[in-house]
Amino acid sequence: MTPFISLEGKRTLITSGTRGAGAATVALFRELGARVLTAARSRPDTQDKEMFVSADLTTAEGCATLAAAVRERLGGVDIIVHMLGGSSAPAGGFASLSDAVWNTELDLNLMPAIRLDRELVPAMVAQGRGVVIHVTSIQHELPLPEATTAYAAAKAALSTYSKSLSKEVSPKGVRVVRVSPGWIETEAAVRLAERLAREAGTDYEGGKRIIMDSLGGIPIGRPSKPEDVANLVAFLASDRAGTITGTEYVIDGGTVPTV
């Protein structure tokens, strides 16, 4: 029986593929037959050396190194999944965000996608096919003013950039799609829930509830698993999604309360 989804032989770049949703996406793409190159600042022991690049993608030099590795090791690329993102901004609202903090958030959440697309998408256009997936965040719709203003703004910029790119390259055969996750139960999220649980004198489920309540609730009753996000990304990258471009797919358990 033909599988519903196959990525057999697809040359794929997935950034930040060593943990969380990125690692789950790398694993699923490889299971579905893709040739996957991934990157992070340091290589875990579990990563195949030949299909991993150690690079700091918050810098122009790191992005250039990765793009060169894509051309050398994969001979080009059919799918790009921009998983890289995160925030280290301090709490305290907008007044606590210095220029350096803003630059850090933009260099992590916006510029790597712009730089890598600029390096790699022209070859996709030349071959007349390809898929680019930008992973944004529901926080570009639901920013948390105390701590995520800069992160949310960077992800909003990524979303707008992605839409504009789709309008330019979709007529040339390259699909561009956004995936917008809510809270994902990654290793870091587990550690946060455990810490909150200890501070509140409750158990792990109680710690998760504290986080969900801070988001205004998750109607489905749980955060997404990394594998949930990977499943959505794989479908959107596959030929089954052949006419999907320029749109955003939210995966948040119903967190965003508006239409």
Rank of each mutant, 00 (worst) to 15 (best):
P3R: 12
F4Y: 13
I5M: 08
S6D: 11
L7K: 04
E8G: 14
E8N: 15
K10R: 15
G20H: 07
A23D: 10
G33R: 07
V36C: 08
V36H: 02
L37W: 01
L37A: 00
A39P: 02
S42L: 06
R43K: 14
Q47W: 06
K49N: 14
F52I: 04
D56L: 12
A60S: 14
E61M: 02
G62P: 08
A64H: 09
A67E: 02
A67F: 03
A69G: 11
V70A: 02
R71D: 15
E72T: 12
L74M: 07
G76L: 14
V77G: 11
I79Q: 02
I79M: 04
I79V: 13
H82C: 01
M83T: 05
F94R: 05
A95D: 09
A95E: 13
S96C: 11
L97R: 12
A100R: 13
A100V: 13
T104K: 15
L110R: 02
L116V: 06
L116F: 08
E119H: 13
V121A: 03
P122C: 04
G128R: 08
G130Y: 01
V132D: 00
V135G: 00
S137R: 06
I138E: 11
E141K: 11
E141R: 13
E141H: 04
L142D: 09
L144M: 13
L144Q: 14
E146V: 03
E146W: 04
A147K: 15
Y151N: 06
Y151A: 06
A154M: 05
K155A: 01
A156Y: 02
A156S: 13
L158R: 02
L158C: 06
T160P: 00
T160K: 02
S162I: 00
K167D: 05
P171M: 10
K172P: 08
G173T: 06
V174Q: 10
V177A: 02
G182N: 04
G182V: 00
I184H: 06
E185W: 15
E187R: 05
A188E: 14
R191I: 05
A193T: 05
E194D: 15
R195L: 14
L196R: 14
R198Y: 07
R198V: 07
G207V: 03
R209I: 03
R209M: 05
M212F: 13
S214H: 03
L215F: 15
S224N: 09
P226F: 09
P226G: 10
E227Q: 13
V229K: 05
V229H: 04
N231I: 00
F235V: 09
F235A: 04
S238Y: 08
S238M: 09
A241G: 08
I244L: 15
T245A: 10
T245V: 09
G246Q: 04
E248N: 06
E248M: 04
E248V: 01
V250R: 14
G253I: 05
G254I: 14
T255A: 12
T258L: 11
